[in-house]
Amino acid sequence: MVKKQNIPAKEKIVSVVLLAGLILFMAIVIGPGFSEPSSPNQNVAEQMLPAGWSAVGGWEIYPKGRLYEKINGREPLFDQYGVVRLRYASVSKGTNDFEVYFYDMQTPDGALGIYLANTPSEFDELELGTLADISGGQVRVLKGRTYLEIFSLAEQTPKDFLIDLSSALVETIPTEKEARRTAVELLPKQGRVRGTLILNRENTYGLAKLTDIFSASYQQDNDEFDYMIRTISPSEGRKMIAAVGEEIFEFDGEIIQSETNSLVAEFMGKTLILNQTGDFLIGLYGAVPPDQGRRRLDQWIETMKDQLHGSGK
């Protein structure tokens, strides 16, 4: 029979303190800032890649708040546009290696915003997703709520490799259930000046009340102007139109026509037209006569009337 030893109370206290200290030390060393990113099932990951491609080490998932672990320094920009998570993998085929970044955003407009914010100075457009371009060894694609970046790790990369991989990855991005197109998809492509599509977060054309609106420049016949559009409820759109009208008046602009759902004004030497139609605020700004601007805006609205339904509240 083994005789049970009694450990003095003082030694018990010392042991407990040492154990607690060890636990605290381990928590600091391997705390949340150093946690490994979660990886989905490898079979699921491989299904995202075309035949012959493989994800080296599997896919890594970085939720909002942890993107800095992969893209340190860029996270604030993605937060600004409503990032939900980043899915990352290093993929390869033969001697060709690439890095793939899927950024899942809260809204399609947020995905477009981050796409536009990262536009390179020189690029060639691609027919992929909603918008896509290629610049050197980089491909960027916008589709729905997802912004996709693909980077080649080699100095010289065959363009067809990049496009084949990009096309296959784009097919894995879910299509929005809603049949309606996003605001940016409603902007006309004909006559658009290349590289002018932007998201105006604030102070659009110097107007503090005109915010979060997409715009692009156009050259049609002898006219030069911008079209603009944003998704907004009818009630909020009418409030914005009224606020913009008041701001233009305060800046000594000329209000030509002001109604509940529309505004026509002369501001900074150009014509500004705003119109709330369904769930969209649509507008034109440029050096065109007001009646000509109105006709151009009406022509654009006519081409997308089936998409401009709304509650009207």
Rank of each mutant, 00 (worst) to 15 (best):
G129Y: 10
A132N: 02
L169H: 00
L148G: 00
G206C: 12
Q190L: 03
G195W: 00
Y205M: 10
A179E: 12
I163K: 12
K159N: 10
I163P: 12
L148C: 11
R194M: 03
D164L: 10
E127K: 12
T146N: 12
L186Y: 12
G136M: 01
L187A: 02
K159Q: 15
Q156F: 10
Y147R: 10
Y205S: 11
V193I: 01
A208Y: 03
A154M: 13
S121E: 14
L128W: 15
I198N: 14
E122I: 01
V184F: 15
L165H: 00
S152L: 01
S152C: 05
T130E: 14
L210E: 07
I163Y: 13
G136H: 10
E176M: 15
E125F: 05
T211Q: 15
F161V: 14
P158W: 15
E122N: 00
V193P: 03
S167D: 06
Q190N: 02
E176L: 03
G195I: 02
P188S: 03
Y147I: 09
G137K: 06
L165R: 00
K159Y: 04
V139G: 04
A208M: 08
S152H: 02
T146I: 07
P120N: 09
L197K: 00
I150Y: 10
G136T: 02
E127L: 15
Q156G: 05
T157R: 14
F151K: 03
F161M: 15
L131H: 06
L207H: 14
I150D: 11
V170R: 12
K159I: 15
E178H: 09
G129L: 15
L126W: 04
T146D: 09
G144E: 05
R192N: 04
Q138L: 11
T196V: 04
R194V: 02
L153T: 11
T175A: 14
